[in-house]
Design a protein around this nucleic acid. Structure first.
Lengths: 324, 324
DNA sequence: CCAAAAGTGTTTGACCTACACCCATGG
DNA sequence: CCATGGGTGTAGGTCAAACACTTTTGG
């Protein structure tokens, strides 16, 4: 078992390393998280907070050889007893300290481009959603909100139990010790400390960035993010994924504004309401929203009908609109 | 580089092996190919040839340890200098002796279920289409028809040159010599030498099966086939993939019957014609079909507009129906 | 002439868009 | 009472399913 020390010329005979990267979206970063600034913030630009909500993505700063110091997607090598989905879950929990509200496979990237010098790397990308419930909840890697798994995803075993050691991924090549690779984070100063008053010092090597203003990313992660964004938009248009961004109860207005944020365009409230209800997957809670400067809105809940596995998850070009 | 001889208990420390499996579809098997019989052929059942066309899938018989003798999807481990797509191409060329007309990533399967004893295996599945042109053409691994690559697939390097050695995949674990893993095909009938006449005996370990009557498959390949079938159907409904099954020129009637075969239901000829033409991607060749017992039909050609990359390839649940 | 498939035209209904309009609340 | 968003109603356009009908060939 000495392949960890293989020389560069030997590496090409090694099997490719399998890593998972996850693009997670949230409508706003957790309060205790540090906020990344790409440095490209234009004065009058579309900075977050100009009215509509924007999407945020958690990134991890690399503390190892290739792309040292660059920001990268949360992720890491698969362990021998983990599902790919489990790896994605673990990586997200380790970086964000919360379980996502949705997780789905995106695409597998296996380019050779990454220099013939290094060991070959195959990356299976996932995309995830954090709802406001998860974001609001105090950090902690509890397996409670264990990501309602996507029923259609054919990935074998169900989401396994919570992870064990809080390892962080910093090197695509799983060289050296596999088990305890908790590489001590360099560049501690890094991003600004806690934003809110949250006591627990956040990991300085994890920060949330506005999807519009990402810093230069390591590897081909920019491409992965682009793919994930496209997919998120695409799915929002024909599915009811948007509700995953919200808590259990929400008003239709809220759901619509989320949809608008993701889609990047406005939607007619009246028509949105009709379509959303026509889906048949929303049910009234019976309660009303309180404390609004206008007519109180009904609260809805999402009926989690274990929907039929969609024929084409992971299809990069798909559409289907199943007819009734 | 001695990990090839690692004992079972050591295997769990090895990185997972990365393999590619491909589900290829064709409307009928090549003439020189052997035809598999699942043994479950019912007398009056929906055997191929009852009128409508059916789908055929090439399988490879395993000649190695796990699942020895079972049929499996064409595929094999990725080489260190290959794109995932290239691996899929190579595997298909080696098994079918032809290049597919379309190739697209399907999903990545990384279950752990496959016993903790063996080395972990991550499979990236592809689906492919063989058109009647490819099927009709004499066998030969010429790089000519080099699979019009799917433009939307973010997979790095373009389809590489033709493969080198005619290796066949028989073991998911790339144990032993990796570099020269041209494991001498057992049952030597093997890949026929030159293209020459169709004389060369077909590989007895490769056979085409009707998609309705597949034999028991190795690993989780049955699941993969199911996923591929679902995706093919789904994409046929909202895309013009169907034409890939045909040659360059075809009548609308032919295109429709292919669509019907894939979808498993009939389609109104009049409406199909309108929709197909409305797509704007078909153009008349100016010629007419000859020798039909009815009014001759116009021949059409597919205009290969390098279409915009579809936002969600590899999305297992997608739909989008891009509006105009 | 007849069968059979190629084409064309027309009706119908579903659905989506846009927009007008009432409802209920906090300030 | 008014601004604001919740919620309902309705007219017009687009599109696809269904089907009637004409056209052109081979037998």
């Amino acid at each position: 078992m000495d392949y960890g020390s293989a020389s560069a010329s030997e590496r090409q005979y090694l099997p490719p390393a399998v890593a998972v990267s996850a693009v997670a979206f949230a409508l706003r970063p957790p309060d205790e998280a540090s906020i990344g600034d790409a440095g490209t913030r234009e004065p009058g630009g579309a900075s977050p907070g100009r009215g509509s909500t924007t999407l945020w993505i958690p990134l991890v700063r690399r503390t190892r050889a290739p792309f040292l110091g660059r920001w990268a997607l949360p992720g890491g090598p698969t362990r021998w007893n983990e599902t790919l989905t489990d790896t994605a879950l673990r990586a997200l929990r380790d970086a964000v300290l919360r379980s996502p509200a949705a997780l789905e496979q995106l695409y597998s990237f296996g380019s050779v481009e990454r220099s013939a010098e290094a060991q070959r790397l195959v990356t299976i990308a996932y995309w995830a959603l954090y709802g406001e419930e998860e974001i609001a909840r105090a950090p902690g890697r509890r397996a409670d909100g264990a990501a309602r798994r996507d029923p259609g995803a054919p990935d074998g075993a169900p989401a396994a139990a919570a992870s064990t050691a809080p390892a962080r991924w910093d090197d695509p090549a799983p060289a050296g010790d596999l088990g305890a690779s908790d590489a001590a984070p360099i560049a501690a100063g890094g991003a600004a400390p806690a934003a809110g008053g949250a006591s627990a010092g956040p990991d300085p090597n994890v920060a949330w960035f506005s999807a519009d203003e990402l810093p230069p990313l390591a590897f081909d992660h920019a491409e992965i993010v682009a793919t994930a964004l496209a997919r998120l938009r695409s799915k929002t248009a024909y599915t009811d994924v948007a509700h995953r961004f919200l808590g259990e109860c929400f008003t239709l207005g809220r759901l619509r504004s989320v949809t608008e944020a993701v889609l990047g365009r406005t939607v007619d409230p009246a028509n949105f309401r009709r379509q959303a209800l026509a889906q048949g997957r929303l049910e009234e809670t019976g309660e009303l929203e309180t404390g609004s400067p206008h007519r109180p809105a009904k609260l809805y809940r999402f009926r989690d009908t274990a929907d039929a596995p969609d024929p084409n998850a992971t299809d990069m070009h798909a559409p289907t609109r199943s007819r009734s």
